[in-house]
Design a protein around this nucleic acid. Structure first.
Lengths: 188, 188
DNA sequence: TGAATTGTTGACAGGTAAGACAGGTTTAAT
DNA sequence: ATTAAACCTGTCTTACCTGTCAACAATTCA
């Protein structure tokens, strides 16, 4: 069972340094999404919605709530890229999941909702464009960043960027470069 | 093996981000339907009652609890199979979604939680086994039925059944046969 | 048999809703 | 620049819902 984390109005208020009464007003005005408990009508706010609200209003996001935005999914089959990616990104402070094929990647993307997808263009080359295209055409995944790691010798980064990728690394990936790019893409 | 038909108060509480004591109070007040076990008087909540309760109160329904017994996902690239499948199954009373590649199928499977996956073995042959294997190895998807539609001339149904498929149709699929098989697999 | 786990019950402290009111800030008009 | 209006936010109060804690019972497992 996945722990769906929710906040009360008081918790949300403390996170952004205002009175809980103000948070209730944000909810009543429809600016912040929330649902009500049947008892007295207590409000509960999904962390996901709260983080989105903070970002929309350029408010600082508390690190303990930003865990979801530090989640990275790696779609790769080259063993060296899988090993490099997992180790480097975990050491860089990211939560890393690895998928070995595009079907598994799809299930993980929908279930774990990572903020970034690293695609190994080496063996998924034929599918990579279709994947990026699907992400870009669905509002649900529109804010998932995409980082493509090309095959050695593939210098045509422009092709990927035009296809919808947010950044490209020419493989085989350098650990430092990979972490740096990911941090850049996630604003960290 | 985890039959998700009933919930304990603790499970229900975690699902809606509330203390178990509160769930018991909802039950005592008659807002949430439940029954008691003879021993200690433990409460048990039917999933459908719980989902109805969540919907009545505009609370988010966890995807894994969403009733999806009539939802079918078709993973196919052959146009004739897509057309046949969609029309026949919709006329048969099923809610049909179509994915054109395995990544999209993965996202839809995790998001829409269909009860049945129809796989076109024609063009996803290489991946089909990996997909079925992944479904069967993950408890989360263990109760998703799998129906494989083979290529014309492929008579080796046994291979698919051993690989984890619940049923096989030798393609190209006959409309009536397809609907009949799906109804059979979903106990309808 | 006894320990561990899980769920119930009761009592109590604490938190939250809702309305009303006062103070501060922004916006617009003079 | 000054004023007034409009709006947002914080504080206060009352009522009652919710979380926490302790003790206990049923079930499971070794």
């Amino acid at each position: 069972m996945n722990e769906l984390h929710v906040l009360t109005t008081g918790e949300a208020a403390r996170y952004c340094g205002v009175n809980f009464r103000t948070v209730i007003r944000w909810i009543e005005r429809g600016q912040l999404k929330a649902y009500k408990l049947p008892g007295r009508g207590d409000h509960r706010i999904c962390v996901e919605d709260f983080v989105g609200f903070l970002q929309d209003n350029a408010m600082p996001v508390p690190t303990e709530l930003a865990a979801a935005s530090r989640k990275v999914l790696v779609l790769a089959q080259r063993p060296e890229l899988i090993a490099t990616g997992r180790q480097a990104l975990q050491q860089g402070g990211f939560e890393v999941e690895v998928a070995g094929n595009s079907f598994v990647a799809g299930t993980m993307l929908a279930a774990a909702k990572p903020a970034l997808l690293v695609i190994d263009a080496g063996l998924e080359q034929a599918n990579a464009f279709a994947i990026i295209d699907h992400l870009r055409s669905r509002g649900e995944f529109a804010n998932v960043r995409v980082l493509v790691v090309t095959e050695a010798g593939d210098n045509d980064s422009q092709r990927w960027l035009e296809g919808g990728a947010d950044a490209v690394i020419q493989g085989p990936a350098d650990r430092a470069e990979l972490v740096a790019k990911v941090k850049l893409l996630l604003d960290m």
